[in-house]
Design a protein around this nucleic acid. Structure first.
Lengths: 217, 217
DNA sequence: CAACGTTCTATTGTATACAATTATGATCCG
DNA sequence: CGGATCATAATTGTATACAATAGAACGTTG
């Protein structure tokens, strides 16, 4: 992507994800242009992309706002994500080579180390987690999956609750990943699919209980 | 959507789908602007949308071309579409009311009538078929599904081969739809899912054999 | 004072000019 | 003749000015 529209995309994205904007909040293109330091033209470009990822939504009157999803919709999102990531894992298991396995192990070692500390390193966890899933998606070698999945991951909710996951949850993620690697090494697509499904659905339920807790306060 | 960018979208889309452009053909924004009779700005907007539907693709050097997918990729597309449409049918089965059932029957009656003629009316078939699937998608009530699925249906290939489907294939579509309606009426999500899966996969194999035939010539 | 209509303002949409980038083709040298 | 290098042309990217549209504020009138 081009320079200005790319920086706009990144700045707006992190503005949303890092809590600069509350869900439901209205935004104007001009505000976003000011935030990203470019003109409205590339901003509109970036906004289109973010609309596709469903981080931004357009009201009936073309006004922009930060996405704000109901519990049911988030439930549905996790279900779809589990379907698609499981499918990606299944395909990846048939296409994974030794080099990829080494990379996956390295990434997950970093992840495991980051969370097995008195004070877990969330940023490193998130980054390693993203790398791990991206590598699998890449090995799935499906342009369409690569297009569809990003619209489901990293909704605002994900980032916003990440530092509320318990250390046990984070450690379990690393364990899930280890089993995924084993399934890939065994070249067993069905195993990979099952582990991935379980992995995402576990994340969903961790997320739900955190949300429920937050709702009580 | 706005006027100019909307007309650009429609014109470019039908330009591609109705055979004005061959798969793989390169296009410039200026050409498209001329075709749609508006300036490049709204064209770029329309192009973004078509990129999301994966009717247009951008090369590494930002140049536009009409999508051209390999057999493997089309296979993968049908697999994903079957997954998502089956999921939509399952959800729809839980949310369908009597009014919707009446509408579905009316749509499918029109479809059936269109194909049960000496010379099947393809245009009417395509339109009724689209309406039928759209209504189900709408009843699934999942914003994300509504966003994801359109990127999978109506790839160039679909439209280009539609008038090559045999009359038996077209008639069978109507029969599949009837069984879907029965599943909806029975409020049986699993049944609906199974029928939809079978429906899409049948379409896939009909498509494959047509393609194979075409490749021989 | 409620409901309606009218102006005014804010916001998004479009066109155009120009900048940056990428492909193309010519030229030179080995 | 093959390949690298540079100039030129084609194409995409960005900024800005203006047009169209939606929203808000205000006043008028029954």
């Amino acid at each position: 992507m081009s320079r200005a529209s790319d920086t706009a995309y990144k700045k707006i994205r992190s503005f949303i994800l890092d809590g600069g904007a509350r869900p439901g909040m209205q935004l104007t293109e001009e505000q976003l242009a000011e935030i990203s330091g470019v003109s409205r033209t590339p901003v509109r470009d970036a906004v289109r992309r973010l609309e596709n990822e469903m981080l931004l939504v357009r009201s009936a009157s073309k006004r922009l706002s930060v996405a704000d999803w109901s519990d049911d919709e988030i439930d549905e999102m996790f279900t779809l994500r589990a379907m698609l990531e499981a499918h990606a894992a299944e395909r990846a298991a048939q296409r994974m080579d030794d080099e990829n396995l080494i990379q996956l192990r390295a990434i997950n070692d970093a992840l495991t180390e980051a969370v097995n500390q008195p004070e877990p390193d969330i940023a490193t966890f998130l980054d390693a987690n993203r790398q791990f899933h991206n590598l699998i998606l890449h090995r799935a070698q499906s342009p369409r999956l690569s297009k569809l999945l990003p619209a489901l991951v990293e909704q605002p909710v994900v980032r916003r609750t990440a530092n509320q996951y318990s250390q046990d949850d984070l450690i379990q993620s690393g364990v899930d990943h280890d089993e995924l690697i084993a399934a890939f090494a065994a070249k067993d697509p069905k195993w990979a699919r099952a582990v991935m499904t379980s992995h995402i659905r576990r994340a969903f339920h961790s997320f739900s209980s955190i949300s429920a807790q937050a709702a009580e306060n």
